[in-house]
Design a protein around this nucleic acid. Structure first.
Length: 517
RNA sequence: GAUUCCGUAGCUCAGCUGGUAGAGCAUCUCCCUUUUAAGGAGAGGGUCCUAGGUUCGAACCCUAGCGGAAUCACCA
């Protein structure tokens, strides 16, 4: 006994405890047994083939009723109204809901009314999955309904489902507890149409993106998530361990360095829709794992990439919404090209009235103080400029705007600006006050890259936990020669938030990270 | 990590100044042949997040913890 406990304690489980079983659950278990006693398998193995779906019926029945005289459909019971020998049920499938009409003598042709009186009325519940066959008609009050002639139980539900009701104007008893919605997303998806819509739109957004990139001849690849060295971003990684190799591994923080290796290897356009992992704070804009599109195109520069990104995102908005205008937090955001473009210096001058372009570190520090921005003593020129921008400019940038030409210290993987060696050829797109993408003319000088890595190592030695590490193999790849290349990273979750008007990143991630309970 | 707010039935929520735990929907029973968020009538259902404390008495006040949300910090 005690050894059993010992073993169990070492197995990570979300719920080891035998949770309290409610009266309603006990009743459903009893109903399941009663069904079995009647010879009905509550979890039958056979397939069930539908001939149509709820959406097609509602859409096409009015024009061609003859096509719907013999339909088969599977779905979940979402509500029941039983009135003696006649009953109405709402059936939900992946495409929507439709009303079913059951009548005792239609369902049970002979003398034996067990299927209706016992199975349907007593032993089925809201939440059960059923298959039906019947014909479509319109009720006296004008609702398109299926008159059910045959009924099969496909799976018994043992846990009561929250009941959400709605009319044209209102939703009643909506399932609103955010914790429950995220932890039990399966319930949320079943009963909250807005949730289904968000995730369908997210899927659609990624499909549109992929089609657009494929249409340009760019190739989708997969690069390692488990990496012996992490790189491509400034962030703290997750670590793990491989038993056979007895080796420390990192979960990637970005696919960047591997995708550039592929450019060296001869790919001229390559992208990955990558899950990245960063061991940092969580908030309504940050989940520990998130999705990033990274795209690299050979023989291009950041100015070309700006045009491409603008066109891609405009295209996404058009495909999702039929217009370039998207409503976010009551505001209308218009992705129609061309977007505004500011250099970082111009943006700061515009929003603070101060021209910092010629300032040295001491003067920048004084300016930050004057603007009431806290700057850490360890911060260098680049960091101070970034802080000023973040505090004074970013929140004002609601309409999509490109910010270009960042300080070199902030961008160890970007090529120096063709006209100003203090800057790099980099842009970010800011939308609704948040960064949605980040792009450079990629640094392809292997010796310069080594120097930048060494500067990062020095930062790391000084205690910067997000400083990059030196990747010798990446430098070796660069030294074979990488064509001039433009690269961009687009935060898929952030973009999905904007495209679906979601208030938090948790709303656009099916299973956001939560604390263990 | 800091601050503020929240945690009551399957779901949505009331619960006043500390005095027997409440409603609607869902569930159950009975009635009922086309209903429209909910057909009618009746009934059952609670670890008031957890553990302490104060008090004659705690869902309510205090302390600690757990979980969540918002704002801030870090970051994308």
């Amino acid at each position: 006994m005690s050894s059993t406990f010992f073993v169990l304690q070492n197995i990570p489980t979300l719920h080891l405890t035998m949770t309290h079983i409610s009266e309603q659950e006990l009743l459903r278990r009893k109903k399941k047994e009663d069904l079995e006693a009647l010879g009905i398998n509550p979890y039958p193995p056979e397939l069930f083939t539908s001939t149509t779906n709820t959406h097609l019926i509602l859409q096409d029945y009015p024009n061609s009723p003859e096509a719907f005289q013999n339909v088969k459909l599977a779905g979940r019971i979402m509500s029941r109204r039983i009135m003696g020998a006649a009953s109405f049920v709402e059936l939900q499938d992946a495409k929507g809901k439709i009303q079913l009409y059951f009548h005792r003598d239609t369902l049970c042709k002979g003398e034996d009314k067990t299927l209706y009186n016992t199975v349907f009325k007593k032993l089925l519940d809201i939440g059960d999955l059923i298959g039906i066959a019947g014909y479509v008609f319109t009720t006296n009050v004008g609702e398109i309904t299926i008159h059910v002639k045959a009924l099969t139980l496909l799976a018994k539900s043992l846990h009561p489902l929250p009941i959400v009701k709605e009319d044209e104007n209102q939703v009643y008893d909506a399932f609103t507890d955010l914790e429950q919605r995220y932890r039990q997303r399966y319930v949320d998806l079943l009963i909250t149409p807005a949730t289904r819509k968000i995730f369908h739109q997210r899927t659609q957004m990624i499909q549109v993106m992929r089609n657009y990139l494929n249409g340009h001849g760019y190739e989708e690849v997969e690069t390692p998530i488990l990496q012996p060295l992490y790189g491509g971003a400034s962030a703290r990684p997750f670590t793990t361990h491989h038993n056979t190799l007895d080796m420390k591994l990192y979960l990637r923080i970005a696919p960047e360095l591997y995708l550039k290796r592929l450019i060296v290897g001869g790919y001229e356009g390559v992208y990955e829709i990558a899950k990245d992992f960063r061991n940092e704070g969580m908030s309504r804009f940050h989940n520990p794992e998130f999705t990033m599109l990274e795209l690299y195109v050979a023989y291009k520069d950041y100015l070309w990439m700006m045009d491409f990104t603008e066109a891609l995102i405009e295209h996404i908005a058009l495909q999702l919404h039929g217009t370039t205008q998207v409503t976010v937090d009551e505001q209308c955001i218009d992705f129609k090209r061309p977007w505004k473009r500011f250099t970082m210096y111009e943006a700061i001058a515009h929003y603070t009235g101060i021209d910092i372009s010629q300032m040295g570190e001491a003067e920048l520090r004084a300016t930050a103080k004057q603007l009431a921005i806290d700057i850490e003593p360890s911060a260098g020129v680049g960091k101070i400029i970034d802080e000023i921008f973040g505090a004074k400019c970013e929140p004002h940038l609601i309409q999509p705007t490109f910010i270009t030409d960042y300080p070199v210290e902030m961008s160890p993987l970007a090529k120096k600006h063709r006209n100003d060696s203090r800057l790099v050829e980099r842009f970010e797109a800011i939308c609704n006050g948040k960064e949605i993408c980040n792009a450079f003319s990629e640094l392809n000088d292997p010796l310069e890259q080594r120097k930048r890595f060494e500067e990062q190592l020095a930062l790391g030695k000084r205690g910067d936990t997000e400083a990059m590490v030196l990747d010798e193999d990446f430098l070796r790849a660069l030294s074979y020669g990488m064509p001039p290349t433009a690269g961009v990273g687009i935060g898929i979750d952030r973009l999905a938030m904007i495209m679906t008007n979601a208030a938090s990143i948790q709303e656009v991630i099916l299973f956001p990270q939560m604390r263990a309970v």
